[in-house]
Design a protein around this nucleic acid. Structure first.
Length: 439
RNA sequence: CGGGGCGUGGCGCAGUCUGGUAGCGCAUCUGCUUUGGGAGCAGAGGGUCGCAGGUUCAAAUCCUGCCGCCCCGACCA
């Protein structure tokens, strides 16, 4: 992409409404525009990152055996009356009436709908296990939206739902999601720690919140330092096999958010030297809730014994749009965002220091084509902006690599490569620069 | 939902107390000079002062009502 043709409205000054760093940087970097409290338009740069994050979630869900579908944003109120949640859900649920006076709602989640879909088609244990997910916009009419995209009213969420014949199979399905979550957050460059979570009225102890550690996190968390060193399962993890050992490894050590923190247990189980108190951002949550919805909504399957029983369900959410905020909270400096390679909107920013200079233009063009062919998704700054402004802009939008090309360096046959994360720079011939960046 | 604050060119703000026909910085446009870490000079454009009523000769400024947004708290993926 050539910057001169792109749409990247950068802000030199921070809009007054933004307080936390990720919100400020997203506005300044031209990723986001607020349209109403907690409702945002995703500008091209933000949209690209959103899609990258979404794609990683999708790949890891698919790898774990989940199947993607897409449910609508609007749902019928009657569906929610079946589970009893229409009345339980408070003002957070956005209720809408259509021209026929039918009551609708903008879905805050999809347990009811997925259960309805499942029960319409599945009757036998032989069709199980199943895990269906979608990535869709949700709406929760928060009383007080804040922190930009981290607590908006409209948000993009991946939610998966597992269906199993009995509790043991349900637990295995839960484990698959647990492992998939470890992997997908890791791929985004995040260290997300599963922490025991409140299950609320659902009961049982099978629920975890996945928390990203960041200094500016919204809530306080307590954990065993050794959790940070646990190995994340690789691409070759066998989702057909027994994942219990991995889950046990990741749940044995103490890790809790402030609302479920047990100071006595913490002191007992975790050596003082390994105790960490930090701030965290919740980016995902896993639940196993058995027949909470399948029972009232009559989603039943026949077992091998010919007896019909409610299917055992779990649900697994990832806050896709929220993740952008979390990633920035966890990865930025004074100058701007530092994107992890896997989610960066562009792989390399090429800075043409002197557009109009024949040799410089030629070298930039050569680099642009090579990087593009190498799948590096370059963004070429071919604007008339002054060098200082270009450098500041590149640092702000946080592309992993900067390739700086100008007449001064070219006179020596060299260009400069800068790694955004470390600030490390190298002056070297263009070919070498390209191979350094993997093109 | 309780408490506090704010709404003035695209962005950041001053002006409001004490009414007199709107200003600063950045950004934008034009010209010239500049060009390796947010340039200089000269000129230009752009504002129903959140909205609606009211008071007044006169309202960004005073009064009433409404709307929007932000912060702290309670609540939440």
């Amino acid at each position: 992409m050539r910057l001169s043709r792109y749409f990247l409205p950068l802000l030199k000054e921070t809009p007054a409404e933004a307080q936390i760093v990720s919100h400020r940087l997203m506005l300044r970097a031209g990723m986001l525009r607020q349209e109403a409290a907690g409702i945002y338009a995703w500008l091209p740069l933000g949209h690209r990152v959103l899609q990258k994050v979404e794609q990683i979630v999708r790949e890891e869900m698919d790898r774990a055996g989940a199947v993607e579908l897409l449910m609508p944003t609007l749902q019928l109120a009657d569906l929610w009356r079946e589970s009893g949640r229409y009345d339980d859900y408070g003002a957070e649920m956005l209720r809408i009436t259509d021209r026929h006076e039918r009551e609708l709602l903008y879905g805050p989640t999809n347990e009811e709908m997925i259960t309805e879909i499942f029960r319409a088609y599945v009757r036998s244990y032989k069709a199980l296990p199943k895990n269906l997910y979608h990535i869709q916009w949700k709406f929760r009419d928060e009383q007080r939206p804040r922190f930009g995209v981290m607590r908006g009213r409209e948000f993009l969420m991946k939610d998966a739902y597992s269906f199993d014949v009995d509790e043991a199979a349900g637990k295995a399905a839960y484990n698959r999601m647990f492992v998939a979550y470890l992997r997908l957050f890791k791929r985004m460059g995040l260290s997300a720690i599963p922490m025991k979570a409140e299950t609320g009225p659902i009961g049982g102890d099978l629920s975890h919140e996945f928390i990203v550690l960041a200094q500016t996190g919204e809530s306080q968390v307590f954990l065993d330092r050794r959790m940070l060193d646990l190995p994340v399962p690789g691409e070759d993890v066998d989702y057909e096999g027994d994942l219990e050992p991995i889950v046990t490894d990741w749940t044995r050590l103490y890790a809790a958010t402030e609302d479920v923190h047990d100071a006595d247990r913490y002191g007992r189980e975790t050596p003082e030297a390994d105790q960490i108190t930090a701030r965290g951002i919740e980016v995902g949550q896993t639940f196993f809730f058995g027949d909470k919805y399948s029972k009232p909504m009559k989603a039943v399957v026949s077992g091998p014994d010919g007896v019909e029983r409610p299917v055992q369900m779990g649900s697994y959410g990832v806050g896709v749009s929220r993740l952008l905020g979390a990633i920035i909270e966890a990865s930025h400096d004074e100058a701007g965002i530092i994107w992890p390679d896997a989610v960066a909107p562009f792989g390399v920013g090429i800075v043409n220091l002197r557009p109009g200079d024949a040799a410089t233009d030629r070298a930039c063009e050569e680099a642009y084509v090579a990087l593009k062919q190498g799948g590096k998704e370059p963004l070429l700054d071919d604007t008339d902006e002054r060098p200082g402004g270009k450098f500041a802009a590149m640092d702000l939008i946080g592309l992993p690599w900067q390739l700086i090309i100008g007449p001064r360096g070219l006179a020596e046959g060299k260009v400069e490569v800068k790694r955004r994360a470390s600030g490390e720079r190298h002056t070297l011939p263009l070919v070498e620069a390209l191979s350094m960046m993997g093109a």
